[in-house]
């Protein structure tokens, strides 16, 4: 089971990193989602992988650690909210500029100049 989980985390991270390095916002957002999946599984395994154990200390030789599950739940909620935020910003950026490239035009701080 360890090998399976390790490979899953590795593949998700690799895919996530590759996609976040793309030039368009949509693949970047997908990549960030993949990264958050990878990190959620990684968090889950930080309490050690166990099967068929009670989440209580002292009932057997080993136990299922309940804390990482609470951490994962928090991380899922946060990454879900963050994905929604960046999605809305990407749509806003697309509608205002007419394209969805991530990079900025060279040396162009129009926002700074709009202030006058």
């Amino acid at each position: 089971m360890e090998a399976l989980v390790a490979i899953a985390i590795g593949v998700l991270t690799a895919v996530g990193l590759y996609l976040t390095l793309r030039l368009r916002t949509f693949p970047v957002i997908l990549g960030l989602t993949m990264l958050s999946y990878a990190v959620n599984i990684f968090l889950f395994t930080s309490g050690r992988l166990t099967q068929n154990r009670a989440p209580i200390i002292g009932t057997g030789e080993t136990y299922a650690d309940p804390l990482p599950q609470a951490l994962v739940l928090t991380a899922i909620v946060i990454s879900f909210g963050m994905t929604a935020v960046i999605m809305i910003m990407a749509i806003g950026g697309f509608l205002e500029s007419g394209h969805d490239r991530v990079n900025m035009a060279e040396g162009n701080d129009e926002a700074a100049e709009d202030r006058a």
């Binding site: 976040t20 960030l32 990264l35 960046i86 950026g93 205002e96 500029s97 991530v102 900025m104 162009n108």
Partner: peptide
């Protein structure tokens, strides 16, 4: 608002999510 500001914002958010 403003298109440059929004797009600079996307970079900022993506970087911080990583």
């Amino acid at each position: 608002g403003g298109s440059e500001r929004t797009r600079a914002g996307i970079q900022y958010v993506a970087f911080n999510l990583i």
